[in-house]
Amino acid sequence: MLRIVCPHCGPRAQVEFVFDRALDAILPLDASPAEAVSRLYARDNPRGWSWELWRHTAGCGAWLKLHRHSVTHEIDAVQTIGDLA
C-alpha cells in the first residue's frame, strides 16, 4: 500500500485516494481519433519515474500530481493542482 503525503491533510493511506491517469495519457483537444486510440489504449508502459494524477477523495478532495516510480512505488514529489474541492 502506498503512503501519500497530501499537502493539506498530511500522510494518508492509498485507500483515501483514487488514481485518475498517468499525465502522459492526457489528450490534446485537437487529437485525431487515431491519435486518441494510440495514446489511451496502445501507449507504452515503461518502468521508471512518471507523473500521475490522483484525487484525495476521502479527505480534502484535492487533485494531486505525484511523481512515482512504477517499480518501487517510491513517491518523491507531490503537488496540488488547483484549489480544494
Rank of each mutant, 00 (worst) to 15 (best):
M1P: 08
L2H: 02
R3I: 07
R3E: 13
R3K: 13
I4V: 13
I4M: 06
V5A: 12
V5M: 07
H8W: 06
G10Q: 09
Q14F: 08
V15Q: 15
V15P: 00
E16F: 09
V18T: 14
V18W: 08
V18S: 14
D20F: 08
D20K: 11
D20M: 12
A22V: 03
A22W: 12
A22Q: 05
L23K: 06
D24Y: 14
I26R: 14
I26Q: 13
L27Y: 05
L27D: 08
D30V: 09
A31Y: 04
S32V: 09
S32F: 10
E35D: 15
E35R: 12
A36Y: 07
V37N: 10
V37K: 14
V37T: 10
V37S: 11
V37I: 11
S38Q: 15
S38C: 05
S38E: 15
L40G: 03
L40C: 11
L40I: 13
L40E: 05
L40K: 11
Y41T: 03
A42I: 02
A42D: 13
R43S: 01
D44M: 00
N45K: 09
R47Q: 14
R47V: 03
W49Q: 05
W51M: 09
E52P: 01
E52N: 11
L53N: 04
L53W: 10
L53I: 05
W54M: 06
R55S: 09
H56V: 07
T57H: 10
G59I: 08
C60M: 11
C60V: 09
W63F: 14
W63G: 01
W63N: 08
K65M: 13
L66T: 02
H67I: 03
R68T: 04
H69L: 10
S70A: 14
V71P: 00
T72Y: 02
H73D: 15
H73A: 12
E74P: 00
E74S: 07
I75M: 07
I75T: 04
I75L: 04
D76Q: 05
V78E: 05
Q79H: 12
T80N: 04
T80D: 07
G82R: 04
D83A: 15
L84H: 04
L84K: 10
A85T: 06
